[in-house]
Design a protein around this nucleic acid. Sequence first.
DNA 1: GCCAACGTTGGC
DNA 2: GCCAACGTTGGC
Length: 152
Amino acid sequence: MNYWLMKSEPDVFGIDHLASRPKQTEHWDGVRNYQARNMLRDQMQVGDQVFFYHSNCKVPGIVGIAEIARAGYPDHTARNPDGKYYDPKSTAEKPIWYMVDVRLVRKLRRTISLEELKQRPELADMPLVRRGNRLSVMPVSLQEWEAILALE
DNA sequence: GCCAACGTTGGC
DNA sequence: GCCAACGTTGGC
């Protein structure tokens, strides 16, 4: 089992959007970064646990726990010419971009803010707290996972 | 809204 | 293959 952190803007798709979906499950589309793509496509497995992170908002931080409900499969939004995730280089035969399905496990009792995460020395190696990091999907070690949950 | 950091693009 | 220009991310 692997652990991950996935970022989303709450105004676009936040934890409450996920909670209101049928089966509290939704596909995670629109990732257009190769490093993140590789994780979606090659590493995420059904049952993996995910921290749901709110970015680009008033209090950025971890707001919930989700799990991978379906492993990587082609992101069909890349083939919709009318959508903002359209990529003409991606085809049905040779998809470039991938997505996974994510199911809500639970919301946290409170937001564990980025500010708080930055203060924990045991989390200093997380890409999340490093300056200039822009990865929207990143691995979390078991030690980091447990340290973060202990903050709740 | 600003802007630093970073990834991608494309000319050469 | 280098690297400047450009677009995007995301904290503040």
